[in-house]
């Protein structure tokens, strides 16, 4: 099936099997490697992307459904000030272990902080609840997002 959609501000035209997960299309056909496959069944959040500005698990989205929509990955947010602040806060807080889940956490954090610049800790926990799976060290990630909120407020 031929589809076209906006990927990180660029128009993409591609002939793709419509039931292929968006995650696989991004990685295998479009070279977007920030999007990771952890569980492939919607439970780990490593594949989080924005579709029409909402965070979703891209393993759950069939490619056919992104036709005419807007898909944003971490690569597309590189130039945004917010992502730089979130990155800095993750580094400063030591919120990265192996880093596999980090892009997903950053997209969820970005989505939270663009809508709610001053979240409570509980709101941060809820916002990343789809990214938490079975590692440890989540406290530092919550700390990092709290710090990122502070950086972004100061930066604006």
């Amino acid at each position: 099936m031929k589809i076209n959609f906006i990927l990180n501000d660029n128009i993409v035209n591609i002939d793709i099997r419509p039931d292929k997960p968006l995650l696989r299309m991004l990685r295998e056909d479009l070279g977007i490697k920030s999007v990771k496959e952890g569980c492939g069944r919607g439970e780990c959040g490593s594949c989080t992307v924005l579709v029409d500005n909402k965070p979703v698990a891209s393993c759950m989205v069939p490619a056919g459904q992104v036709h005419t929509r807007k898909v944003t990955t971490l690569e597309g947010l590189e130039s945004s000030g917010e992502i730089k602040q979130i990155q800095d806060a993750f580094v400063k807080s030591g919120a990265v272990q192996c880093g596999f889940c980090t892009p997903g956490f950053m997209i969820s954090a970005y989505s939270l902080l663009t809508g709610n610049p001053n979240p409570e800790r509980e709101e941060i926990r809820a916002a990343v609840s789809g990214n938490v799976c079975r590692c440890t060290g989540y406290t530092k990630i919550i700390d990092a997002i709290e710090l990122a909120a502070e950086y972004i407020r100061r930066f604006k």
């Binding site: 419509p18 492939g40 069944r41 759950m60 069939p62």
Partner: peptide, 26 residues
């Protein structure tokens, strides 16, 4: 029927879907 696909894509991954057409109602 393909709407949110949060069950359908899991069944597909597990190889539990038969060869049937998908109707994208989204």
């Amino acid at each position: 029927f393909a709407a949110g696909c949060t069950d359908l894509m899991v069944l597909k991954k597990e190889g539990q879907l038969e060869d049937r057409p998908w109707i994208d109602i989204s």
